[in-house]
Design a binder for these strands. Structure first.
Length: 983
RNA sequence: GCUCGAGUGGUGGAAUUGGUAGACACGUUGGACUUAAAAUCCAAUGGACAGUUAUGUCCGUGCGGGUUCAAGUCCCGCCUCGAGUACCA
């Protein structure tokens, strides 16, 4: 009986599935433990070896917790709405639901073969109506809520209406749009229904507003900033323009402070907390109002340094600032307009990337200094962004380097307001500098001066202390097909929510998935997309009468909608009334361990915290942070392979053909070429040492221009970096290279270049787990992925070491099964054997607690090496060992468990108990150092006193030999650790 | 620029509060078994030098300083690489 891993693994996977081994119960006497993975988007490429890294780690943890007596919830699902399926639908006409289903089947097969202990009975898919029904409902709850700053929580919009009816809005302290105007209870009563709705929309936690968005005409959709790379769309690389559009937004800014505060209560990686903290970008300062000369308007600016106000020598507005056109004087009009036009052409990314160019334009207008009354010129400059703060800056050139550079460039005065500080070279951004030339602030350090200034500003009514956040409200509309439809219809142009009992509003069928010809989103193609408010159902568009039947919203929700609450759904995945029952939520509460990539730091991981806090405010969930602990797994990188194309131009273009050169050959050519270049610069290329290429030898009329690296599929390259040329030529992807010539090394091999890059389809460096499962088994894959290195570290995939792990499993197998026969003895174990076992238990438990799975694998190897050396085959050792290793190699462990005579699965067997007594040592091999350098070791009893140790060491013959007659100055004895002799 | 990580043999990586640097694997070399190969097993393996051996000496955790009986680990100053972020007022 050999270790037939394929048979064993298939057998146990089937057993687990048919016995519901990993099904979690929603009530239990055991303590609960919830282990969550970030659910994948099921892409067409299938799972690659990078995906399972985090899943293996969480699976080990989940399995370990089951052995430790926990009721473990370890679910999996799919984030199945998304752009790739839609793009594929546009290209092929295949319905995204169909594509998604096919991809999910592949993912499921691949995950099953790795032996994860997921409770598949709770599987969820965000694109299922049963699921997005609740996403729609949460949206409607946000719509029906506003954020009360006094209570510091979300409140029902009905409560706000009650206040409006009684007192108007002047006493309301709520988060709302900037442009809100005051009204009385009397006013409110007189407003029309539409006016009331318009006002309420300015308070709702999800609201419609005209937002400047990144519009991608080719995709027919709006993109988030993080979906744009180098000014073009991340997917497809299409151009993007800025455009105003009516969009749904989420008032996440209402939660800015709570999102910051919450970070202190959760055990997440510091780097991730830092990322969120920076993203939210809290800064304390003041809002200052500068009155425009010869106008009754004023310009507000936010500043973190109100104490430097006496150093203001100009003001800069973003070119997009709403007052620019109004204040510009006739003589500056042409220049200002020209500058605005130039700025508009540059994308926001462009403007931000260019730090060196200083540009700007004077408007001709002035504001009055709030304290001195002095006229301060107003400039516009593209270093000021419309989207941050108020889009205006009070420029203090002596205290800010950018303002300083701007002033220098345009010869604007630079008054110095710091005592004894030289600003002839650069600005002084030191917060400890003492203020001077500043009236009532003279002699104060910044901290004190800031407080004083805010007080003065508030006294004069010229400003207020303010906390500003960088965080912006999140745009929530997408002009896409494959997403959740909004539960919204429009009556008189105002959005109306569809009640819970009529959800879900199902995604309609469409002829094509592109935007309509008149620029409406894809849902504009649907012919049956109107809401009948009498029968509460979707009806044909032709029935729209704007009395009882109205048009439905054409946008769909973004990808992050479904992923912002999915962790709650797993608790009660089949509930049809609610997203989860109160009982289920009360029992599971929150995620105990969440594992996923750090790339979601400012997306999913921020939005989901926001939604959770909202649901908490509404009393729908019991906790306001849903994940107690989070671990980021590092990315598994690919090792790309390159071949090098010889770039040359032949006199006769028809005679040109593609030539690839082996790596070392290429290097010698480049070297040789360089020396030729030296002697005969710019000469026609004379053929180099290319014995194999006779054609080239007779025809020397080629202009050489270097080598271009081309990605080749890593699966065509062996471990020695040799390319399988035939396979390369046969690959349909490379049909263009069928007649290519390959110049090999002297020994006839063709060597590729290697480079570590992100694993991606376009780089042909994707390694999928299927082959490894087939060749070595899932248990080997699991252990090897863990053995690669620390979980949180990024690392290149390299199968070179996999034989070591596989060999280890075979060696382990042989402890139980010798010469094809199960042979475990019931003999009493020796002290030495018990010591090996308990040492291993201790180390493995510590490793799991520290998520140091790579060192656990080493620990197992050491244990098996040592037990092999002792020829140990005793049940008292091997039975617990099987349980120890089960989280890592579950199939093998199940098989051994069965061989050991057990009928039940190993999955819930208690973890072996570590007992200190087996590790107690009576002696220690002390390292004896001289001046810190270890010279020899000496075994001594552990009950010796310090003095006794020193005596024993000093009288030892080797010590005296080392000292060679010298007398030590000092002897350091650390009992149980080390002896160091100084002198 | 800023923030956060990280630099250890030929390679991936160990070293839990400062206490024997290089665990465990890969690779390489030599050997056993075999007609042969695969598989398996055994041995050696940071570098340099000395020695017949036993062994010994020196150097060694990116670089330069420091603290300490003792530093991969702590402190100061650099360099390099990676990730994130950015004219944030």
């Amino acid at each position: 009986m050999k270790y037939h891993f394929n048979e064993i693994e298939a057998k146990w996977q089937k057993y687990w599935a048919s016995n519901d081994t990993f099904k979690a119960k929603n009530n239990s006497n055991k303590p609960k433990f919830y282990v969550l993975d970030m659910f994948p988007y099921p892409s067409g490429a299938g799972l690659h070896v990078g995906h399972p890294l985090g899943y293996i780690a969480s699976d080990i943890y989940a399995r370990y917790k089951r052995h430790k007596g926990f009721n473990v919830l370890h679910p999996m699902g799919y984030d199945s709405f998304g752009l790739p399926a839609e793009q594929y639908a546009i290209q092929t006409g295949q319905h995204p639901a169909k594509t998604t289903e096919t991809n999910i089947a592949t993912y499921r097969r691949q995950m099953d073969q790795i032996g994860f202990s997921f409770d598949w009975s709770r599987e969820i898919r965000t694109s299922n109506p049963d699921y997005y029904k609740h996403t729609q409902w949460i949206f409607s709850q946000l719509f029906d809520s506003y954020y009360c700053k006094d209570a510091d929580q979300a409140r029902p919009i009905s409560a706000l209406i009650t206040i409006f009816e009684k007192e108007g809005n002047t006493t309301v302290n709520a988060v709302c749009d900037e442009d809100i105007t005051s009204f009385s209870a009397q006013d409110w009563k007189q407003f029309t229904l539409i006016q009331k709705q318009e006002i309420l929309l300015k308070y709702r936690l999800t609201f419609l507003s005209d937002t400047e968005v990144n519009w991608c005409p080719a995709l027919g959709t709006v993109l988030a900033n993080d979906e744009i790379v180098n000014g073009v769309s991340e997917r497809g690389g299409h151009p993007v323009v800025r455009k105003k559009m009516k969009q749904w937004s989420m008032r996440i800014t209402a939660y800015a402070q709570r999102l910051l505060d919450g970070l202190d209560t959760i055990d997440w990686p510091q780097s991730l907390k830092d990322a969120q903290t920076n993203w939210i970008g809290r800064s304390e300062g003041a809002m200052v109002h500068f009155k425009i000369k010869d106008s009754d308007k004023s310009i507000s600016v936010f500043t973190t340094r109100p104490d430097t106000i006496f150093g203001v020598s100009f003001m800069t507005l973003a070119p997009e600032h709403e007052l620019v056109a109004e204040i510009t004087t006739p003589e500056n009009k042409a220049a200002v307009e020209k500058y605005i036009k130039a700025t508009a052409k540059r994308s926001e990314r462009d403007r931000m990337a260019d730090v060196k160019t200083i540009s700007g334009q004077f408007t001709g207008a002035y504001v009055a200094h709030p304290f001195t009354g002095e006229a301060i010129p107003i400039w516009i400059g593209d270093y000021v962004l419309a989207g941050y703060g108020t889009g205006a800056v009070m420029a203090v050139p002596c205290g800010d380097q950018r303002d300083y550079d701007f002033a220098k460039h345009f010869a604007i005065p630079i008054p110095n307001i710091f005592r004894d500080i030289d600003i002839s070279e650069h600005a002084c951004e030191d917060k400890d500098a003492v203020i001077a030339n500043s009236d009532f602030l003279d002699g104060m350090p910044a901290k004190k001066a800031i407080k004083k200034m805010i007080y003065e500003l508030e006294q004069k009514g010229m400003g207020t202390g303010k906390i500003n956040y960088r965080l912006r409200d999140a745009v929530f509309s997408r002009q896409r097909y494959w997403g959740e439809p909004f539960p919204v219809y429009y009556k008189d142009g105002m959005p109306q929510i569809i009640a819970k009992e009529h959800l879900p509003v199902l995604l309609p069928e469409v002829e094509k998935y592109l935007p309509t010809d008149d620029g409406k989103p894809p849902l504009g193609n649907a012919t049956k997309w109107a809401w009948d408010t009498v029968n509460n159902e979707v009806v044909d568009n032709s029935q729209i009468d704007d009395k009882t039947i109205f048009p439905l919203e054409l946008n769909t929700m973004p990808g992050w909608a479904g992923s912002s609450w999915y962790f709650n759904r797993y608790m009660d995945a089949h509930n049809t009334d609610a997203f989860a029952s109160k009982e289920a939520l009360a029992y599971w509460r929150d995620v105990d361990l969440y594992i996923g990539g750090s790339e979601h730091a400012t997306g999913h991981l921020l939005y989901s915290r926001f939604w959770q806090k909202f649901l908490f405010d509404k009393g729908f969930v019991p906790v306001d942070e849903y994940a107690k602990k989070l671990i980021n797994q590092g990315m598994i990188l690919g090792t790309s392979a390159f071949i090098y194309r010889w770039e040359y131009a032949h006199e006769d273009a028809a005679k040109e053909k593609t030539i690839f050169v082996s790596k070392h050959k290429m290097e010698s050519i480049i070297k040789e070429r360089a020396s030729i270049e030296k002697s005969k610069r710019n000469q026609v290329h004379e053929n180099l040492d290319l014995a194999a290429t006779t054609d080239r030898k007779s025809n020397a009329k080629e202009q050489w221009s270097g080598f271009t690296p081309i990605h080749v599929n890593v699966n065509m390259v062996n471990a020695s970096n040799e390319l399988d040329i035939a396979a390369f030529k046969n690959d349909p992807i490379h049909s263009a290279y069928q007649d290519a010539e390959f110049i090999t090394e002297a020994d006839g091999t063709f060597i590729v270049g290697r480079e570590v890059e992100k694993m991606s389809k376009s780089k042909y460096n994707v390694v999928n787990p299927d082959d490894i499962c087939h060749d070595y088994g899932a248990d080997t894959l699991r252990m090897y992925e863990m053995f690669l290195g620390p979980l949180e570290q990024a690392k290149p995939w390299n199968t070179a070491g996999i034989t070591g792990v596989h060999g280890f499993l075979k060696k382990l197998w042989k402890r139980y099964i010798v010469n094809d026969t199960f042979s475990v003895s019931d003999e009493e174990p020796s002290a030495e054997e018990l010591k090996i076992l308990h040492k291993t238990i201790k180390k493995v438990e510590e490793d799991i607690a520290n998520f140091s799975f790579n060192t656990s694998v080493s620990t197992f190897m050491i244990a098996v090496n040592e037990l092999t050396a002792l020829q140990c085959n005793k049940r008292a050792i091997l039975e617990p060992l099987a349980v120890l290793i089960e989280p890592y190699a579950p199939h093998l462990a199940e098989e051994l468990w069965q061989q050991l005579g057990h009928k039940e699965s190993i999955a819930h067997v208690p973890f072996p108990k570590y007992e200190e007594k087996y590790l107690v040592e009576s002696s220690k091999v002390y390292p004896i150092s001289f001046n810190g350098k270890m010279r020899f070791t000496m075994e001594l009893s552990l009950d010796l006193s310090k003095e006794a140790i020193e005596k024993a060491v000093m009288s030892y013959e080797k010590t005296q030999k080392q000292l060679a007659g010298r007398t030590p100055k000092k002897v350091i004895v650390v009992p149980g650790k080390i002896v160091n002799i100084v002198g």
